[in-house]
Design a protein around this nucleic acid. Structure first.
Lengths: 341, 341
DNA sequence: TGCTATTATGGGAGCGGTTGCAGAGACTTT
DNA sequence: AAAGTCTCTGCAACCGCTCCCATAATAGCA
């Protein structure tokens, strides 16, 4: 079943080298010869042996997708499935394959070594790596091309693809202000996470733009969990000056918790207070009321990451790529369906 | 960086063959020699080149994971993420890697070819393949070992891992009957899906066990969607004899729809009618009231599939494996927290 | 003690590709 | 017409590993 170059060569009456040139679309092959070889290859259902090619050429057409340990809990939302679809789709389109590696603490070191040293992959896509992830260091040292999903603030040698958290948050808050809300609070993500910090910056930028003084008590730090959102909203509610008339919550998960806190004290959304989220998880549309939020192009994030990485592999030594993808405001009724004022 | 066998051989003062034996844990190597080689290998941070090994030995230690097109919508629940985790975890433990292939219509044929002919993978895990999936045929013809996730009714040459749908349904319904419910209806999955048919069989078996005559009007076919569950429950409600006092719904998604239908007509769960689901999706615990359901060992499903496949690869020619994993009844308040009668 | 197992090791031929190099024609150039 | 280019092709040397086979050393046995 497994046809080899040699067989095709014999069958087409040429040398192995020539067949190889044809298969790899290299120049200096006679048109007629090329056609003949292609015909034979097709009829014999030829498929290059990846191991052999990899050994000889040093590249495998395989990208590694590393999802480090600990984020597995995030699997509860369809982020990773969508990301994976985007990645595999882009890889398929360019004749590449995807090697999956879901990190586990105990095997981490071992797997990293296998991944890097084995020469199995041409490059690595790092999905939500932690800032101090040891794999990052290893990748850099090894000189293996890689892109991160999620902006990485500390290293200037890394390439990344991310959504434009700052501008997205900016737009969302600007929308609230345009709609007439006066005192807009925010429940942030962890400050030490880039996404959390960027979204806060966007919030601040929107206030600045309208020359609104920032009231620090209206900024409460959350942790991207439902429970964290719940507690943060309680803190806002306990403010002597009140929670304001709108809250920009930096994730849908936290918005869920915030909504619960509001319901408990009998506040209605959006009549008493408006609420907006970030992520557009599936449940956002089914909340009561449906949540205004920011939709991330997760599928595209994956696709662009793969395309970028393939690009990087074929042009080694180029400077790091940094790509920010735009998001989409999804206006639902949690912030009032009409301008407020 | 990339150490080779040869280098280790030189460094340890032995031949390449001997080093290879040591690395692969083969017999006929002197204890002392073995120790010395291992030491050198360790200190040189040796990692075998997978491509070379694969080329020479004909196996790659890579398993393919195929998730055919169309099921991507199912990505909305954490089934696949969990499955993937189980698979990768088992593979890691046995020094295997996972090649991911998420099917897309247009690339399907091409990818199948690459997958099968490239010699890239030792075997394939087929996640929820359709009964007539062309890849199934291709795998059989090629003689490549594979296991399916989900029982396959038609072919006797295929290996599969599945949850024991029949017995799980049986247990669930038996539980309802023991709790004192008299007229237990069921909303089934599509009859032409194995899981749907098996769960119905389990329902029937439980009735038979208690010598309860089966009332065909209490069996309504759904389609595993929320909307399908909603409509099925409406049909039950419109029955002249009433919907019975409990409903075994064959999936949590449909149970969600059924609950909606009940709420619309003002029926209370479990006081007016009890409801049970199947799958234990995350939202089941947060429904109002929390849903009694059947928890599937999805992670284990993946792990066992990988382990079985690795087993099969190393013992070619053995007969197909069929494994059914037990489930767990998760009793919540949707069927009454105490026996009913 | 001689002769056959057994164990430990090295040699070398692949596995199926890629690629540098050389050579054969055909085609320009002066 | 001789020399220089260019295009097309084949040869052969790898890539790093596995595994069969030969050989040497040691052990087992009559």
């Amino acid at each position: 079943m497994a046809t080899t170059l040699e067989e095709i060569a014999k069958s087409a009456g040429v040398s192995r080298s020539t067949v190889s040139r044809v298969i790899n679309d290299q120049p200096n092959v006679d048109q007629e010869t090329r056609a003949r070889v292609l015909l034979v290859a097709e009829s014999l259902n030829y498929q290059p042996n990846i191991a052999a090619r990899s050994l000889a050429a040093g590249r495998t057409q395989i990208l590694g997708l590393a999802i480090p340990a600990g984020v597995s809990t995030l699997f509860a939302d369809p982020y990773f499935p969508l990301l994976i679809q985007g990645i595999t789709s882009a890889c398929n389109a360019q004749d590449h394959s995807v090697m999956l590696w879901v990190g586990e603490p105990e095997y981490e070191r071992r797997t990293i070594r296998r991944l890097l040293a084995g020469g199995l992959v041409d490059g690595v896509i790092l999905a939500s790596a932690l800032v101090d992830d040891p794999i990052l260091e290893a990748l850099l040292k090894r000189g293996l091309p890689f892109v991160m999903i999620g902006r990485h603030a500390t290293s200037d040698r890394t390439s990344y693809i991310d959504v434009d958290n700052l501008n997205s948050a900016h737009e969302m808050v600007a929308y609230l202000l345009r709609a007439g809300y006066k005192r807009v609070a925010t429940i942030t993500g962890p400050r030490n996470m880039v996404a959390g910090a960027d979204r806060l910056q966007g919030y601040l930028a929107a206030l600045r733009e309208r020359k609104i003084a920032c009231d620090p008590s209206l900024i409460v730090e959350g942790d991207f969990t439902e429970e964290g959102g719940y507690r943060a909203m309680q803190r806002l509610l306990s403010l002597p000056t009140g929670p304001g008339d709108a809250v920009f919550v930096a994730s849908d998960g936290m918005a869920l918790g915030a909504m619960r806190a509001l319901r408990e004290v009998g506040k209605r959304v959006p009549d008493d207070i408006a609420l907006t989220g970030f992520d557009d998880l599936p449940f956002a549309a089914h909340m009561d009321p449906p949540l205004t939020t920011v939709r991330q192009p997760v599928y595209r994030l994956g696709a662009v990451a793969a395309e970028t990485l393939i690009e990087m592999v074929s042009h080694p030594g180029a400077s790091p790529r940094r790509i920010l993808l735009p998001t989409e405001l999804v206006i639902r009724s949690s912030c009032g369906s009409l301008p407020h004022r």
